[in-house]
Design a protein around this nucleic acid. Structure first.
Lengths: 336, 336
DNA sequence: ATCAACGATTTAATCGTTTAAAATACTGTA
DNA sequence: TACAGTATTTTAAACGATTAAATCGTTGAT
C-alpha cells in the first residue's frame, strides 16, 4: 500500500502539497493538482485513515451496538441510521452483543480503543454498567436506542411504549374484550416495564382491575411466547385476548395457538407489538403496534452526530417516538 | 483521553516499559509492573488502537459487508462469523449495501482507508467490480459469502445450491408433482443460476422437459414472489407445485395464495429455500431447503483469518456447504 | 532598481504507539 | 575489587498523515 510520501515523490512535490490537494485545505496551483491527482491514480493510493485519525483525533466512524441482530425489529433501524450517517459524512457499522452484558463490555471497550466518534447503543440488560460510565467519562458520545441504561443519563431515542401499549389495549377493550392477558418483555428492561404500564393504564381507565394471574413476564424471545401462552391456555379460566409485547414472542404464541387448536379471533383475540413480515402469511392478519423503525434509527444518528459536533446543549436529550396502531382482523369486535 | 506518556509519567517509567507491560512483550520487574498497572487503573487508560495499528500495520478488524440486512437469512451468518473472529482475537462488524453496487464501492473504499485486515463479502450484483479488483491487488483479503463476484477469483464459502435445489425438486417429483414451477433468484447472481440448474437437473433426471412457461425470474425480494405467483396463478394451466428459491419471496407467494384463495398443499404444493421463522405460524408447515447459516459464517471467518495469517496456500479456496432438506406438510404426496 | 506584500510551496513538529538498539543496573566470579 | 555477562530499562526512530510556521517566488508600487 503506497503512502503519501510515495505519491509526493512520484508527483515531485512535498507531502504537504499532496495532503492539500486531497483535502482541499489550501489553494494549490492547477499544474501541481494535476500532477498529484495523476500520481494518486497511478499508484492507486488510498489515504491511511489511521494516520489521519491519529492526528486529527476523530475517526468519523460510528458504531451501532445491538443486543440481538436476529430480531427483525433492528435491521430497519440500522438502515435509518446508516443513511443519516452517510449524509453527514460519517461511516456506520454494526456490532452484536447477543444480549450478553459481557460481550457488550468487550465490544464497547474495543470501540473505545479504536477511538470511534460515537456509539448508538441498545444495551443488554445487566447491572454492571461501569463500562458505559467510564466510556462516557472519557468523552465518547453515546445515544441510547430503544432502551436506556438505567442509572445513566444520556441522549436517547425511545418509543412511546406506554402510549403504544395503552392504545392497543384500549382498542381491545372497545372491541369487547375484558379478560386480556399480557405477555410482557423482561421487566428489567425499560421497554418491558413501560409496555406493562400502558396495559395497566388502559385497563384501569376502563375500570378493570389488572389481574396478576393474567400477567406473564416473557423475555422477548420466541420460546417464552410459546411457553407462556401454552401455560395460560392450559388454565381453566382462559383469557379472551392476549396482548404480546413484541413480534418475536408472537411467533411462539402462534405456534402454541396452533398446537392447542385455538382459532383467532373466534376463540381468542391477539394483538402484538412490531410488524414482522408475517402479517402476510399468517391468517388472520394481526392487530399491531407498529414502530417507525427507520425513523428511530435516523433520529438517533442525527442526535449522535449533533452531539459529536457540539451542536446540542449539555443536558441529555430524550426523544419519544410515537408508534401507530394498525387494527386488523385478529381483534375483530366480539359478538356479545 | 490519557496517552501512554501520561501513564509512563505517573508510573515514573519510560513509555517503552508501559508498552511492554501492556503487551507482555518483554520481561519487566514485578515492581514496575505493579506501578504501571496502577497508573493505568488510575487514569482509566485505554491504548490507542489507531496508533498501534499504524505502527504494526494491522488492525485486527474484520468487516462483513452484506447486501440486505433485512433478509433474515443473514443474521445467523453474522453470529457465526463473530464468534469465530472473537475466538481468534479479531473484532468483527457489519456494514450494509442495500444491494446497491454504488454503496458497496463506497463501503469497500472506506474499509480500505481504515485498513481493516479483511472483508467478508456478499456482493451486490453489478458489472463494475473494479473496486474489488483494486482492493485485492492492494493485498486486502476478501472471502466471498453466499455469492461470488463473477470474474474474480477469491476464497469463497458457498451453499451447494445445485444439490439443494435438485434434492428439493426431486422430492416434489417423488411426491407425485409434475408441473413444478420455479421462482428463481436474479439470474445475474450465482445463487440464482445454480438453484435454477438444480431444478432443471432434477426434472430431466425424471424425464420431464423443463417448461420455460414455468420458470419465473424473481429478485429475492418479497414483492417479486407476490407478483410472479399472482401471475402464474392467473394462467389457465396452473402448476401443481411451486419451488421458491428464497424465504423472503415465499412470504410474497403466501400472500398471493391467500388472496387467490388457493390452499396448500391441496390446490398447490409449495417448497422453499431458507427456514424463516414463519414455519411456526403459517399453516401448513413448509418443506424447506435449510442452509446452515451459522456454520457458513463461522467457516468463512475461519478461512478469512487463516488467509490473513498466511496459513493458506495461494490458490483460492472454495468451500461448498451442504444444505438439508426438511420435508413438511406443504408437499404432501399427491393422491393419484 | 528596490522592496513590500502576497500567494504558493516546503519544512518540520506532532499525534500515540512499537521495537530495535543503546544504556544502565545487577549478578556472580576471579 | 574489577569485570564479564545478564537482565532490565530507556532512548530514539519509525508508522502515515495534518498543519502551523518558514521559505521561496512573483508582482506591483515607488
Amino acid at each position: 500500500m503506497p503512502s503519501i510520501v510515495e505519491v509526493a515523490k512520484r508527483a515531485g512535490v512535498s507531502i504537504a502539497t499532496v495532503s492539500n490537494v486531497i483535502r482541499g485545505t489550501k489553494r494549490v496551483s492547477p499544474a501541481l493538482q494535476e500532477r498529484v491527482q495523476l500520481a494518486i491514480r497511478d499508484l492507486d493510493y488510498y489515504p491511511n485513515e489511521l494516520a489521519r485519525s491519529l492526528k486529527v483525533k476523530q475517526t468519523r466512524m460510528l458504531v451501532m451496538v445491538l443486543p440481538d441482530i436476529t430480531n427483525p425489529f433492528f435491521p430497519e433501524i440500522i438502515r435509518g441510521a446508516e443513511d443519516c450517517a452517510f449524509q453527514r459524512g460519517y461511516f456506520l457499522m454494526t456490532a452484536n452483543t447477543d444480549e450478553q452484558i459481557g460481550r457488550e463490555r468487550r465490544i464497547v471497550s474495543a470501540l473505545r480503543s479504536y477511538r470511534v466518534d460515537g456509539i448508538l447503543l441498545a444495551s443488554a440488560p445487566g447491572k454492571d454498567i461501569s463500562h458505559i460510565e467510564s466510556v462516557l467519562r472519557a468523552g465518547l458520545s453515546i445515544v441510547c436506542l430503544d432502551r436506556t441504561v438505567s442509572g445513566i443519563e444520556t441522549d436517547a431515542v425511545l418509543l412511546d411504549n406506554v402510549r403504544g401499549a395503552q392504545e392497543c389495549v384500549r382498542h381491545l377493550i372497545q372491541a369487547g374484550y375484558r379478560r386480556i392477558a399480557i405477555i410482557t418483555g423482561p421487566l428489567k428492561l425499560l421497554t418491558g416495564r413501560e409496555r406493562l404500564r400502558g396495559y395497566g393504564d388502559a385497563l384501569r381507565e376502563a375500570d378493570i382491575e389488572p389481574d396478576p394471574a393474567l400477567i406473564f413476564e416473557g423475555d422477548f424471545r420466541e420460546d417464552s411466547g410459546y411457553r407462556l401462552s401454552k401455560e395460560m391456555l392450559r388454565r381453566r379460566r382462559k383469557p379472551s385476548a392476549i396482548f404480546v409485547c413484541n413480534g418475536v414472542m408472537t411467533l411462539g404464541v402462534l405456534k402454541a395457538l396452533e398446537e392447542t387448536g385455538m382459532l383467532c379471533p373466534n376463540d381468542i383475540a391477539l394483538a402484538t407489538f412490531d410488524d414482522l413480515m408475517l402479517d402476510h402469511s399468517f391468517h388472520p392478519h394481526l392487530t399491531t403496534v407498529v414502530q417507525p423503525s427507520y425513523e428511530i434509527g435516523a433520529r438517533a444518528a442525527t442526535i449522535l452526530i449533533d452531539r459529536i459536533e457540539g451542536k446540542l446543549p449539555k443536558e441529555p436529550l430524550v426523544v419519544r417516538i410515537a408508534p401507530t396502531l394498525i387494527v386488523r382482523e385478529s381483534t375483530r369486535p366480539r359478538r356479545p
